[in-house]
Amino acid sequence: TTIHVGDLTLKYDNPKKAYEIAKKLAKKYNLTVTIKNGKITVT
C-alpha cells in the first residue's frame, strides 16, 4: 500500500496501518485522505 503526501511516497505492507497513518497525517495537517485504486493520497 502506498501513501502519497505531496512529493512524499510512503510504502507500507499493511494496508490498514497505512490507512491509519494517512488519517493521522490528514488530521495533523488538516488535509483530506483519498483512496483510489488501492493508493492512498493525502491532499
Rank of each mutant, 00 (worst) to 15 (best):
Y12V: 10
T9A: 09
K16H: 12
T41E: 10
A26N: 01
Y29V: 01
I21C: 07
G6F: 13
A18L: 08
V5W: 15
N30Q: 08
L25F: 06
Y29H: 07
Y12M: 06
L10C: 15
A18M: 05
T1R: 01
T9Y: 08
T32V: 14
A22G: 01
N37K: 07
T34K: 10
V42M: 15
E20I: 11
D7L: 09
A26S: 05
K16F: 10
V5R: 03
D7F: 13
T43Q: 11
Y29R: 00
N30C: 07
A26H: 03
G38C: 04
G6S: 05
N37D: 15
K28A: 05
A22M: 07
K23R: 11
K24L: 14
H4L: 12
K17Q: 13
T1M: 13
T43H: 14
L10E: 04
Y12I: 11
G6W: 13
K17L: 15
A22H: 00
L10V: 07
I35D: 01
T2S: 09
N37Y: 08
L31M: 14
P15G: 06
T34M: 10
E20R: 11
A18E: 01
T41P: 00
D13P: 09
I40L: 07
I21M: 14
A26Y: 02
A18V: 05
T34L: 10
K36P: 01
A22T: 02
K27H: 10
N14I: 06
K11E: 12
D7H: 14
L8K: 08
Y19Q: 07
N14M: 04
K28L: 09
G6E: 04
G38L: 02
T34N: 08
T32I: 14
A18I: 06
T43C: 07
K23Q: 14
T1H: 10
T34D: 06
I35M: 08
K11Y: 15
I35N: 02
P15V: 12
T1L: 13
N30P: 01
A18F: 07
T32P: 03
T34P: 00
E20Y: 13
T2F: 08
K17M: 13
Y19N: 05
V5N: 04
T43R: 09
N30S: 07
A18D: 01
A26V: 04
